[in-house]
Nucleic acid binder design. Structure first.
Lengths: 342, 342
DNA sequence: CTGTTAGCGCGTTCAT
DNA sequence: ATGAACGCGCTAACAG
């Protein structure tokens, strides 16, 4: 049998209101009674019913993380695990629970989000997808539900968001290679419809531009095609006349594939091709050779996301009063894959 | 302003009860009225308040996944990501939401679990940790809350659990190497306090025993020490007099380290040392050479976990009536790392 | 300071 | 087939 406030009240010989007051820490209760009630609560093993609480307070102390639709490939990415870990940590520090949800299609996502928010099951959303045009963001924005975007949206610039400065990160990665003496630097791009991909490409170009170096379309390899026909793409790339001596790759996983193929082709990293990539997954260190990678502090990104969202939920009046865009500083971890050839 | 049943009722000129009946799909409502109410619900954009619903029904249609504390998180994030993916998929197919939670210490975990269950925020728990002696399991079991353990507990054998037959998996991995002609086979173990580790070690031994082969304590390397002083351990191992020609490693990540060190020591895989490991992470295929690995179908494990738990929640009367232990079949993926040396 | 009352939005009796 | 009334467990308004 569950222990309710009613029982505690009866057992302590006081009214329910008093018990409630003790629970919520109101001070207008005689010290003596307060102690007694607390003792009885302990004795009976009372735990407040959060559901009832949120029915009346209209807040649930929980937020939902909406995972990107076709969870299949994205999910297996270490990125999301790390992010979620950060989100959970940040939220639980503030007493919030995390609900994980996802929808197969965009329509389904909208349905889920609407149910959750209108049904008052969660107080806010963390959106992880970052397509150019996102119906979910549109929905959340127009209905002014509290939410934070992990990533960036071109369309709405006033929205609360947490992000890495991907352009700058790519700029730094490229500059590092330039510092190492490379003058012909290639690029392995990510999926074209993601903003991240465009930002990184931009950073890469800017770095070359600022250093007076050139780049050619043939130096840019589509990352996705590597998964299927990695061998051919890399082979073609390495046979380019006057080919690049270094490469900026958009993801550590992709870099793994690249290195593997290069080995099969009897090329040496970094001697024949130096590489810097992104995300700094744990395995980057274990690779042969270890991979230089931009650490984007994904865990911190997640923690920050939940914290700013909760802040917004608890103090909606601060909207537009403080800044809406939070950038987590990245960091280049230099390893062997980008070292100077000796 | 939120749309409640009250409003729908007023707008439709019927009582709240009727609206409720329509919503829950009861058939004792005149077709005509049912349609009208449904139309109005659509019109007004009504979404049932899940919180109120669960207050009265005493069920939340959501379950909680308790993530292991920071201690083990290093071991293999990929495992948990894949597992959670399966859990979310399995749960959402049945209309359940997933709450993610974790505690830094065991005490904190207990606190969280207790809050969630007694506070009726979730209907059940999925427990991922699998120490020999787990306070959380003890708590859940004695209070007879619905829960499922992903893994195995020696202490309580009647509890609902989903698992891989790790012993059998290790047996199969070892047998595979034996089939390949190896007679001296080493083993890289996992953390000693995990049941998984012991099971796998057992399977390894049994395989050797059944084939009349010997094993020596020096052939068993502590996996954790590899992370720190991998170089030394492996070097020692390879310099053993009459050393093993093959190795069963407890995890793909560990295998990565091993292969890396072997390369530095100028040994060849599989020629100098054949390796089979566990989990079949995506990168196993991309390794040089590709790693033979036991695929434990982690996604299916997760999906199964949420489904049996929900089954138990919805039909508690079936307890002890059906089996409580579900095994997901594993599968050996043979790749180059265990191929016959030519 | 404390107890009484009135909901939060919904399901579930009872009657009718 | 339908409506009125009550209660889930809790908070907040009002009295005293």
């Amino acid at each position: 049998m569950t222990v309710t406030m009613k029982k505690v009240a009866r057992r302590a010989g006081v009214s329910i209101s008093t018990v409630s007051r003790v629970l919520s820490g109101h001070l207008n209760v005689r010290e003596e009674i307060s102690c007694k009630v607390k003792r009885i609560m302990k004795e009976l093993g009372y735990t407040p019913n959060i559901i009832a609480k949120s029915l009346v307070s209209k807040t649930t102390n929980s937020i939902c993380v909406l995972l990107p639709g076709p969870a299949e490939e994205l999910f297996s990415n270490l990125f999301f695990m790390e992010l979620i870990r950060g989100i959970v940590a940040g939220a639980s520090r503030l007493g919030f629970d995390i609900l994980i949800s996802s929808g197969a299609t965009e329509q389904e996502e909208l349905e889920v989000v609407s149910q959750l928010l209108k049904g008052r099951r969660v107080d806010g959303m963390i959106v992880l997808s970052s397509h150019y045009d996102d119906a979910v963001i549109e929905y959340l924005n127009t209905n002014s539900y509290p939410f934070v975007l992990v990533g960036r949206s071109d369309k709405y610039d006033g929205i609360l968001s947490v992000d890495t400065n991907h352009s700058m990160a790519a700029y730094d990665a490229t500059s590092h290679l330039i510092t190492m003496g490379h003058e012909r630097i290639g690029f392995v791009s990510g999926p074209q419809d993601l903003i991240v991909s465009r930002d990184r490409l931009e950073g890469y170009r800017n770095a070359l531009l600022d250093h007076g170096l050139e780049w050619y379309p043939e130096w840019i390899v589509e990352g996705e095609s590597l998964q299927d026909s990695g061998y051919g793409s890399i082979s073609d790339f390495m046979n380019l006349p006057n080919r690049p001596t270094a490469l900026v790759a958009v993801d550590d996983m992709v870099t793994f594939s690249v290195i593997r193929v290069l080995k099969q082709l009897k090329y040496k990293v970094p001697d024949d091709l130096a590489i810097v990539s992104f995300n700094n997954i744990p395995l980057a260190e274990l690779s042969v050779p270890p991979i230089s990678s931009i650490d984007t502090r994904i865990y911190d990104l997640g923690a920050m996301a939940s914290q700013v969202l909760i802040q917004r939920i608890q103090h909606p009046e601060h909207e537009n009063q403080y800044k809406n865009r939070f950038i987590i500083a990245h960091q280049l971890i230099e390893r062997e894959s980008s070292m100077l050839a000796m």
